[in-house]
Design a protein around this nucleic acid. Structure first.
Lengths: 147, 147
DNA sequence: CCGGATCCGTTTCGATACTG
DNA sequence: CAGTATCGAAACGGATCCGG
Protein backbone atom coordinates (compact mmCIF):
# COMPACT_ATOMS: atom_id res chain seq x y z
CA UNK A 1 0.00 0.00 0.00
CA UNK A 2 2.01 2.93 -1.18
CA UNK A 3 -0.76 5.48 -0.76
CA UNK A 4 -2.46 5.73 2.62
CA UNK A 5 -4.18 9.06 1.93
CA UNK A 6 -7.41 8.71 -0.07
CA UNK A 7 -6.80 11.91 -2.01
CA UNK A 8 -8.28 14.83 -0.09
CA UNK A 9 -11.57 14.62 1.72
CA UNK A 10 -11.22 18.28 2.54
CA UNK A 11 -14.69 19.27 1.45
CA UNK A 12 -16.10 16.51 3.62
CA UNK A 13 -13.87 17.20 6.60
CA UNK A 14 -16.15 17.61 9.61
CA UNK A 15 -14.35 20.66 10.92
CA UNK A 16 -16.74 23.09 9.29
CA UNK A 17 -19.73 21.39 10.85
CA UNK A 18 -18.11 21.56 14.25
CA UNK A 19 -17.50 25.24 13.71
CA UNK A 20 -21.11 25.98 13.00
CA UNK A 21 -21.87 24.59 16.41
CA UNK A 22 -18.89 25.69 18.45
CA UNK A 23 -17.23 28.33 16.36
CA UNK A 24 -17.95 31.36 18.45
CA UNK A 25 -16.39 32.77 21.50
CA UNK A 26 -19.16 32.24 23.97
CA UNK A 27 -20.31 28.72 23.32
CA UNK A 28 -17.10 27.10 24.45
CA UNK A 29 -16.96 29.27 27.54
CA UNK A 30 -20.35 27.99 28.58
CA UNK A 31 -19.21 24.46 27.98
CA UNK A 32 -16.11 25.07 30.01
CA UNK A 33 -18.28 26.16 32.93
CA UNK A 34 -20.68 23.26 32.56
CA UNK A 35 -18.16 20.51 31.98
CA UNK A 36 -15.23 21.58 34.08
CA UNK A 37 -16.59 23.82 36.81
CA UNK A 38 -19.99 22.42 37.69
CA UNK A 39 -21.97 25.52 36.82
CA UNK A 40 -25.52 24.88 35.81
CA UNK A 41 -27.76 27.93 35.97
CA UNK A 42 -28.24 31.03 33.88
CA UNK A 43 -26.96 33.09 36.73
CA UNK A 44 -23.87 30.93 37.13
CA UNK A 45 -22.92 31.58 33.55
CA UNK A 46 -23.60 35.28 33.80
CA UNK A 47 -21.16 35.48 36.68
CA UNK A 48 -18.34 34.11 34.59
CA UNK A 49 -15.26 36.32 34.54
CA UNK A 50 -15.88 37.12 30.87
CA UNK A 51 -19.20 38.86 31.59
CA UNK A 52 -21.38 37.39 28.88
CA UNK A 53 -24.40 39.52 28.00
CA UNK A 54 -27.73 38.03 28.94
CA UNK A 55 -29.15 38.01 25.44
CA UNK A 56 -26.08 36.28 24.06
CA UNK A 57 -26.19 33.77 26.85
CA UNK A 58 -29.84 32.99 26.24
CA UNK A 59 -29.16 32.58 22.55
CA UNK A 60 -26.21 30.26 23.02
CA UNK A 61 -28.00 28.14 25.59
CA UNK A 62 -30.85 27.72 23.17
CA UNK A 63 -28.52 26.70 20.37
CA UNK A 64 -26.62 24.28 22.56
CA UNK A 65 -29.90 22.62 23.42
CA UNK A 66 -31.00 22.51 19.80
CA UNK A 67 -27.76 20.76 18.95
CA UNK A 68 -28.33 18.24 21.72
CA UNK A 69 -25.28 19.27 23.69
CA UNK A 70 -27.09 20.62 26.73
CA UNK A 71 -30.44 19.84 28.24
CA UNK A 72 -32.39 21.79 30.82
CA UNK A 73 -34.84 21.00 33.56
CA UNK A 74 -36.20 22.74 36.61
CA UNK A 75 -34.16 22.18 39.70
CA UNK A 76 -35.74 19.84 42.21
CA UNK A 77 -34.41 21.70 45.20
CA UNK A 78 -35.54 25.11 43.94
CA UNK A 79 -38.40 25.13 41.47
CA UNK A 80 -37.74 28.59 40.07
CA UNK A 81 -34.23 27.66 39.00
CA UNK A 82 -33.49 26.05 35.65
CA UNK A 83 -30.48 23.77 35.63
CA UNK A 84 -28.52 23.02 32.49
CA UNK A 85 -26.69 19.72 32.14
CA UNK A 86 -24.56 18.26 29.41
CA UNK A 87 -25.91 15.36 27.40
CA UNK A 88 -23.69 12.45 26.48
CA UNK A 89 -22.88 14.30 23.30
CA UNK A 90 -21.89 17.28 25.38
CA UNK A 91 -19.74 15.24 27.72
CA UNK A 92 -17.94 13.83 24.73
CA UNK A 93 -16.61 17.29 24.03
CA UNK A 94 -14.36 16.96 27.06
CA UNK A 95 -11.42 15.62 25.06
CA UNK A 96 -11.59 18.60 22.73
CA UNK A 97 -11.75 21.01 25.63
CA UNK A 98 -8.88 19.32 27.41
CA UNK A 99 -6.62 19.29 24.37
CA UNK A 100 -7.38 22.96 23.92
CA UNK A 101 -6.45 23.71 27.50
CA UNK A 102 -3.23 21.74 27.31
CA UNK A 103 -2.20 23.48 24.12
CA UNK A 104 -2.91 26.91 25.52
CA UNK A 105 -1.12 26.18 28.73
CA UNK A 106 1.92 25.04 26.80
CA UNK A 107 2.23 28.15 24.68
CA UNK A 108 0.52 31.04 26.41
CA UNK A 109 0.84 32.62 29.78
CA UNK A 110 -2.02 31.50 31.96
CA UNK A 111 -2.62 31.57 35.65
CA UNK A 112 -3.87 28.02 35.69
CA UNK A 113 -2.72 26.02 38.72
CA UNK A 114 0.06 23.60 37.88
CA UNK A 115 -1.51 20.71 39.69
CA UNK A 116 -4.74 20.81 37.71
CA UNK A 117 -2.95 21.10 34.40
CA UNK A 118 -0.43 18.42 35.29
CA UNK A 119 -3.21 16.01 36.07
CA UNK A 120 -5.02 16.82 32.83
CA UNK A 121 -1.81 16.15 30.98
CA UNK A 122 -0.92 12.98 32.79
CA UNK A 123 -4.26 11.30 33.00
CA UNK A 124 -6.92 13.04 30.93
CA UNK A 125 -8.89 9.85 30.68
CA UNK A 126 -9.12 9.65 34.44
CA UNK A 127 -10.43 13.20 34.73
CA UNK A 128 -12.98 12.57 32.02
CA UNK A 129 -14.19 9.43 33.73
CA UNK A 130 -14.61 11.28 37.00
CA UNK A 131 -16.61 14.06 35.43
CA UNK A 132 -18.85 11.63 33.59
CA UNK A 133 -19.39 9.70 36.78
CA UNK A 134 -20.31 12.88 38.62
CA UNK A 135 -22.97 13.72 36.05
CA UNK A 136 -24.27 10.18 36.07
CA UNK A 137 -24.79 10.40 39.83
CA UNK A 138 -27.82 12.62 40.49
CA UNK A 139 -26.84 13.52 44.03
CA UNK A 140 -23.55 15.00 42.96
CA UNK A 141 -25.16 17.08 40.28
CA UNK A 142 -27.92 18.48 42.40
CA UNK A 143 -25.78 20.09 45.03
CA UNK A 144 -22.87 22.15 43.88
CA UNK A 145 -20.35 22.10 46.69
CA UNK A 146 -20.97 25.25 48.72
CA UNK A 147 -19.27 28.60 48.11
CA UNK B 1 -5.94 13.80 50.13
CA UNK B 2 -9.64 14.20 50.32
CA UNK B 3 -9.80 17.21 48.01
CA UNK B 4 -8.29 16.88 44.56
CA UNK B 5 -9.93 20.02 43.15
CA UNK B 6 -8.25 23.27 44.25
CA UNK B 7 -11.51 25.16 44.43
CA UNK B 8 -12.18 26.57 40.98
CA UNK B 9 -9.48 27.95 38.76
CA UNK B 10 -12.20 28.99 36.37
CA UNK B 11 -11.01 32.54 35.95
CA UNK B 12 -7.55 31.22 35.13
CA UNK B 13 -8.74 28.46 32.84
CA UNK B 14 -6.89 28.87 29.55
CA UNK B 15 -9.94 28.33 27.40
CA UNK B 16 -10.63 32.03 27.00
CA UNK B 17 -7.12 32.69 25.77
CA UNK B 18 -7.41 29.93 23.24
CA UNK B 19 -10.67 31.44 22.04
CA UNK B 20 -9.13 34.81 21.39
CA UNK B 21 -6.78 33.05 19.02
CA UNK B 22 -8.99 30.41 17.50
CA UNK B 23 -12.50 31.48 18.33
CA UNK B 24 -13.73 32.43 14.93
CA UNK B 25 -15.00 30.47 12.05
CA UNK B 26 -12.21 31.02 9.57
CA UNK B 27 -9.09 30.52 11.61
CA UNK B 28 -9.66 26.84 12.21
CA UNK B 29 -10.60 26.25 8.60
CA UNK B 30 -7.25 27.64 7.51
CA UNK B 31 -5.53 25.43 10.04
CA UNK B 32 -7.45 22.45 8.79
CA UNK B 33 -6.16 23.13 5.29
CA UNK B 34 -2.60 23.71 6.43
CA UNK B 35 -2.31 20.85 8.88
CA UNK B 36 -4.43 18.17 7.31
CA UNK B 37 -4.55 18.89 3.60
CA UNK B 38 -1.15 20.30 2.71
CA UNK B 39 -2.41 23.63 1.46
CA UNK B 40 0.06 26.42 1.74
CA UNK B 41 -0.72 29.42 -0.45
CA UNK B 42 -3.19 32.27 -0.34
CA UNK B 43 -4.84 30.90 -3.42
CA UNK B 44 -5.12 27.43 -1.92
CA UNK B 45 -7.07 28.82 0.99
CA UNK B 46 -9.27 30.94 -1.22
CA UNK B 47 -10.26 27.85 -3.13
CA UNK B 48 -11.55 26.14 -0.01
CA UNK B 49 -15.14 24.96 -0.32
CA UNK B 50 -16.21 27.61 2.19
CA UNK B 51 -15.22 30.51 -0.09
CA UNK B 52 -13.46 32.79 2.33
CA UNK B 53 -13.24 36.43 1.22
CA UNK B 54 -9.77 37.65 0.43
CA UNK B 55 -9.75 40.43 2.99
CA UNK B 56 -10.84 38.08 5.74
CA UNK B 57 -8.26 35.54 4.67
CA UNK B 58 -5.47 38.11 4.68
CA UNK B 59 -6.51 39.25 8.13
CA UNK B 60 -6.57 35.74 9.59
CA UNK B 61 -3.26 34.80 8.05
CA UNK B 62 -1.71 37.87 9.60
CA UNK B 63 -3.15 37.06 13.00
CA UNK B 64 -2.04 33.45 12.82
CA UNK B 65 1.47 34.64 12.13
CA UNK B 66 1.35 37.18 14.94
CA UNK B 67 0.39 34.39 17.29
CA UNK B 68 3.28 32.28 16.07
CA UNK B 69 1.08 29.56 14.67
CA UNK B 70 1.97 30.02 11.03
CA UNK B 71 5.03 31.40 9.32
CA UNK B 72 5.48 32.46 5.71
CA UNK B 73 8.28 32.54 3.20
CA UNK B 74 8.59 32.87 -0.55
CA UNK B 75 8.44 29.59 -2.36
CA UNK B 76 11.77 28.45 -3.73
CA UNK B 77 10.29 26.91 -6.82
CA UNK B 78 8.18 29.94 -7.70
CA UNK B 79 9.36 33.27 -6.37
CA UNK B 80 6.04 35.07 -6.68
CA UNK B 81 4.26 32.56 -4.47
CA UNK B 82 4.20 32.89 -0.69
CA UNK B 83 3.98 29.62 1.19
CA UNK B 84 2.52 29.39 4.67
CA UNK B 85 3.70 26.67 7.03
CA UNK B 86 2.76 25.74 10.56
CA UNK B 87 5.26 26.37 13.32
CA UNK B 88 5.77 23.83 16.07
CA UNK B 89 3.12 25.65 18.03
CA UNK B 90 0.81 25.31 15.06
CA UNK B 91 1.54 21.62 14.63
CA UNK B 92 0.71 21.10 18.27
CA UNK B 93 -2.85 22.09 17.49
CA UNK B 94 -3.29 18.80 15.67
CA UNK B 95 -4.62 16.95 18.72
CA UNK B 96 -7.28 19.62 19.16
CA UNK B 97 -8.26 19.44 15.54
CA UNK B 98 -8.36 15.67 15.56
CA UNK B 99 -10.50 15.46 18.69
CA UNK B 100 -12.86 17.95 17.10
CA UNK B 101 -13.12 15.88 13.95
CA UNK B 102 -13.72 12.67 15.86
CA UNK B 103 -16.43 14.28 17.94
CA UNK B 104 -18.17 15.72 14.92
CA UNK B 105 -17.97 12.48 13.02
CA UNK B 106 -19.51 10.66 15.94
CA UNK B 107 -22.52 12.89 16.28
CA UNK B 108 -23.17 14.67 13.01
CA UNK B 109 -23.71 13.54 9.48
CA UNK B 110 -20.55 14.07 7.51
CA UNK B 111 -19.32 12.74 4.23
CA UNK B 112 -15.90 12.00 5.64
CA UNK B 113 -14.42 8.74 4.35
CA UNK B 114 -14.58 5.96 6.90
CA UNK B 115 -11.00 4.88 6.42
CA UNK B 116 -9.54 8.27 7.22
CA UNK B 117 -11.67 8.70 10.30
CA UNK B 118 -11.05 5.16 11.47
CA UNK B 119 -7.33 5.71 11.31
CA UNK B 120 -7.60 8.99 13.20
CA UNK B 121 -9.57 7.22 15.87
CA UNK B 122 -7.36 4.19 16.10
CA UNK B 123 -3.95 5.79 15.92
CA UNK B 124 -4.09 9.56 16.17
CA UNK B 125 -0.55 9.68 17.44
CA UNK B 126 0.67 7.92 14.34
CA UNK B 127 -1.06 10.39 12.05
CA UNK B 128 0.33 13.30 13.99
CA UNK B 129 3.84 11.90 13.80
CA UNK B 130 3.52 11.47 10.06
CA UNK B 131 2.35 15.01 9.52
CA UNK B 132 5.09 16.43 11.69
CA UNK B 133 7.65 14.36 9.82
CA UNK B 134 6.34 15.63 6.51
CA UNK B 135 6.75 19.23 7.60
CA UNK B 136 10.18 18.53 9.02
CA UNK B 137 11.29 17.16 5.66
CA UNK B 138 11.72 20.10 3.27
CA UNK B 139 11.35 18.06 0.12
CA UNK B 140 7.93 16.82 1.09
CA UNK B 141 6.75 20.29 1.92
CA UNK B 142 8.00 21.94 -1.22
CA UNK B 143 6.13 19.82 -3.67
CA UNK B 144 2.54 19.09 -2.99
CA UNK B 145 1.83 15.79 -4.66
CA UNK B 146 0.26 16.79 -7.95
CA UNK B 147 -3.53 17.10 -7.89
C1' DC C 1 -1.31 35.60 -12.59
C1' DC C 2 -0.40 36.03 -7.15
C1' DG C 3 -1.20 38.21 -2.72
C1' DG C 4 -3.28 41.27 -0.86
C1' DA C 5 -5.68 46.39 0.22
C1' DT C 6 -9.70 49.36 -0.06
C1' DC C 7 -14.40 50.55 -0.24
C1' DC C 8 -19.13 49.75 1.10
C1' DG C 9 -23.85 47.63 1.81
C1' DT C 10 -25.55 44.12 4.94
C1' DT C 11 -25.61 41.16 8.75
C1' DT C 12 -24.48 39.98 13.23
C1' DC C 13 -22.92 41.03 17.75
C1' DG C 14 -23.10 42.77 22.21
C1' DA C 15 -24.01 46.37 26.17
C1' DT C 16 -27.70 48.26 28.45
C1' DA C 17 -32.29 48.57 29.88
C1' DC C 18 -36.38 46.47 30.74
C1' DT C 19 -39.91 42.49 31.82
C1' DG C 20 -42.35 38.13 33.43
C1' DC D 1 -33.92 34.12 38.13
C1' DA D 2 -34.33 33.80 33.36
C1' DG D 3 -34.82 35.78 29.91
C1' DT D 4 -36.62 39.83 25.77
C1' DA D 5 -36.19 44.60 23.31
C1' DT D 6 -33.62 48.07 21.57
C1' DC D 7 -29.99 50.12 19.22
C1' DG D 8 -25.18 51.46 18.12
C1' DA D 9 -20.73 49.15 16.96
C1' DA D 10 -18.29 45.81 14.84
C1' DA D 11 -17.58 42.15 11.69
C1' DC D 12 -18.60 40.07 7.45
C1' DG D 13 -18.46 39.33 2.49
C1' DG D 14 -18.57 40.82 -2.32
C1' DA D 15 -16.56 43.60 -5.68
C1' DT D 16 -12.93 46.03 -7.30
C1' DC D 17 -8.36 47.83 -7.59
C1' DC D 18 -3.26 47.59 -7.12
C1' DG D 19 1.84 46.36 -6.79
C1' DG D 20 5.32 42.81 -8.07
Amino acid sequence: MPEPQPQSWRSACPVNIALEILGDRWTLLILRDVLLFQRSTFKDFQESPEKIASNILADRLKKLQQHGILESHRSESDARVIAYRPTTKGLDLLPVLIELILWTDRYEETGAPRRSIARLRRAPHEVIAEIKAAFADPTKVAKRSGK
